[in-house]
Amino acid sequence: MDRLTSWIARAVFLFLYLPIAALIVYSFNSSEVSYRFDGFTFRWYAELFADRMLLEALRTSAVVGVIAALVATVIGFLTAFALVRFRVKGRAFFVGAILIPLIVPEIVLGVSLLTVFSTAGIPTGLLTLVLGHVVITLPLATLVLMGAMSSLDPSLTEAATDLGASPWVTFRRVLFPLLRPSILAAFLLSFTTSFSNIVISTFTAGVGTTTLPLRIYSTLRTGLTPELNALGTLLVVATLGVILAVGVSQMRRILAGPTTTP
């Protein structure tokens, strides 16, 4: 049975990369229409690097994504820690309130955020974009970290405290190492959520802060261009390259001999 589920999991990874493979193939398609393959071309890559607006949108998305994900992960960590580790009053209220952004249809949240920002006199721009994205990524980060913390054996931190470690030392030496993969998970999930958000961005972006999905979504009426396949390909290949580089060196180290870490 374990073997079967392993195979299913591998099939799911394949499933995840199926459209990416299509994307890569079609980024070299010389045809302007997606349903036919006419031949090989680099034309879309050339057009991509000449597309000033698209690249600027990519930069905006990357900046907003990193900031929003960092903020969400930090706040999410504090919140999860407080909710899991302390007997705080109004815990149910907190959990419920953090979930609201997930429950409200995004367009509703977007429209009302715009109203709130304009009433408060905050001009739309990078700040409002980040705030809007923090709202929708905070529940994700918090839930992931709450899940990780609540199934963590509490005796570990208690032992550290009993041994006289300060809360900061306990966090740095015990909690953080144990939770590191989950923190990474929370950050990555927040980043991609922010990076791909359309609706909240529609209402919180301002002059010069059109994000990549906004830019792409607004081209729907005139049709998506194959240069977007080229952009997708580059993003995936660049990331995979980095991982491979890091992953391979790591594996070599493991093969080379005993490491100090488990």
């Binding site: 990416i20 994307l23 998970a185 999905p213 792409i216 977007l228 952009l231 997708g232 990331t239």
Partner: peptide, 23 residues
């Protein structure tokens, strides 16, 4: 592996959706 799960989502949602339509 976690990062592998997330990489496809670096490509835009609409671009992925259109890739599905093509597939």
């Amino acid at each position: 592996l976690l990062v592998l799960v997330i990489i496809p989502f670096l490509t835009d949602f609409l671009v992925r959706t259109f890739a599905w339509i093509t597939l």
